[in-house]
Nucleic acid binder design. Structure first.
Lengths: 135, 135
DNA sequence: TTTACAAATAGGAATGATTACGATAGAATG
DNA sequence: CATTCTATCGTAATCATTCCTATTTGTAAA
């Protein structure tokens, strides 16, 4: 997803345009990497001195709620990345730099039958390690 | 794994026996459920009034390090359960009560080839939802 | 353009899980 | 039973995240 598409989603749902929001979205649009709230804050500070934690976290949650960002949990910290706009898939995630690679195979396909009596709400399949650049 | 096996592992590795440790292990041995540090603290308090946070967390980490417990992250809190001692497998986890069910199919088998240039260190495949009892 | 109002933000305090630390108590070993 | 580490207590510190209030800012309608 690019910045413009993300801004359109916000507009559609009645959220306001702000320069900060565009800048935040730019931060996520440039790379296929999971980043933390702190990463984002550090990116924003030079241009928006005194930007508040509240603004960072409120917008991260907003973006997640409207499916602009996707979130995961890596060593006790929430990480976010721009949502991939095509079909359902999972990720390899580099533990060093957070870079991701798509995996085009969903293990859930085979397994539903094994869990007939359980109400499945959600699942997570992530592979962790080092990308070629970080090895 | 049962309490005795766990105590043997500790002894082998040179850690001391304490009543608190046995009690903590008992807590995990009785159920196939992921529990938090707070759950454990509440279980311990009646018998060991004034037990310290430090003791709880230090032992949870110790038990994880020596493969007595396995850990996962559910809504921002670390959860622990007794390690299963048989073959490699994954879990369905009830979001309400933490109960688990084994899934006998590992999605990693097929996927290694798709990630030749990445150094895989670890992976997580978890399915979340409600168990029959919590539906 | 101006106005009016809801939404967004700043600044900082509060929270909740987790970790750290100096002092004391308790196992293990000979 | 004396020595030596390890374990524990009690509490303070840390770190990410959330909450709160006053103020500012987009936005759409007048």
């Amino acid at each position: 997803m690019n910045v413009q598409e993300a801004l359109n989603i916000l507009k559609e749902k009645g959220y306001k345009y702000t320069g900060k929001r565009e800048e935040m979205l730019t931060f996520f649009a440039v790379e296929n990497r999971y980043r933390t709230a702190k990463d984002l804050l550090q990116y924003m500070e030079p241009n928006y001195e005194g930007i508040s934690f509240d603004t960072i976290y409120r917008n991260l949650h907003l973006f997640s709620d409207v499916d602009i960002l996707e979130a995961t949990e890596l060593n006790g910290e929430k990480h976010f990345r721009m949502k991939c706009d095509h079909h359902h898939h999972h990720h390899f995630i580099c533990k060093e730099c957070g870079v991701t690679k798509e995996i085009h195979r969903c293990p859930m396909d085979d397994i539903q039958e094994e869990l007939k009596s359980f109400a499945i709400q959600d699942h997570k399949f992530e592979i962790y390690g080092l990308c070629p650049g970080c090895q």
